[in-house]
Design a protein around this nucleic acid. Structure first.
Lengths: 127, 127
DNA sequence: CCATCAATTAAACAAATGCTTAATTGTTGA
DNA sequence: TCAACAATTAAGCATTTGTTTAATTGATGG
């Protein structure tokens, strides 16, 4: 059975090299996760909701954005399974979903922040 | 000293709640990192370059894209400090940068992929 | 049942993104 | 020095994205 070589052949076979690669869909799903957090506003909101549960108006106030804009982002985050919502009276409260994925993302956010931009973060208390 | 309350006051003070929050710039820098990997093509390229070093033509072949498109993505990844390049003859070879950040991102990519889309990945060998 | 407030949805729009084709730069070997 | 090939850059374009303002839906308390 013949396998095509790469354009610049160094001996390896395409099939061998690409055989171990995750399928394109996997990258698509993963990229979607990163895209969710690839927006500053959404990242701030997600970070916030990893630390406390809040209603839309308060989130808006805390991140300094309009309610519709925040609602828009919350919809995306929820669609991506990163946050959950629960209505209590007039307000709808949001918080980070309690899943392995979100825990992983949150700890990663903190880690990268430590590496990229240390800012001295003691006493985080958003209760 | 007076601090304003949140629109929906549950007792907390804005200053208290926002005091522990990383500055906006930090989120901006972090979002930029996620944005780099928030594109399927770029994510595949980065993943590839975490596993092997290759020239542009071969990368193009492996991900099924044109050279200019790949070059474009490589420029972005390099600007973000995720990959490095070295010219050898006519070819320019790229690979993942050897930094704590890239190691963290790579391991995270694998972790999330495990969670999100298990596909049975034994024998990864892209040598 | 109605006034009020919270939240979402709709419509519109400017800005950013990713790709294509074409032109340009850089390097090697004949 | 020139022909051939690798890579980048430029220009143009269609799509997507994030936001705004306005309209709509949802829920409570008087």
């Amino acid at each position: 059975m013949e396998y095509p070589s790469l354009p610049h052949d160094h001996g390896q076979l395409v099939e061998k090299r690409l055989g171990g690669m995750p399928p394109a869909e996997s990258f698509g799903m993963l990229a979607a996760v990163f895209k969710e957090l690839g927006d500053e506003s959404r990242l701030r909101i997600f970070w916030l909701l990893c630390h406390c549960e809040e209603c839309v108006i308060n989130i808006s106030s805390m991140v300094g954005m309009s309610s519709p804009a925040v609602s828009h982002h919350l919809t995306k985050l929820k669609a991506g399974g990163l946050i959950t919502s629960s209505r209590r009276g007039k307000e709808v409260y949001y918080r980070a979903a309690d899943t392995e994925k979100t825990r992983l993302l949150h700890s990663m956010i903190e880690s990268i922040m430590d590496i990229e931009c240390p800012w001295g973060k003691d006493n985080i208390d958003l209760t």
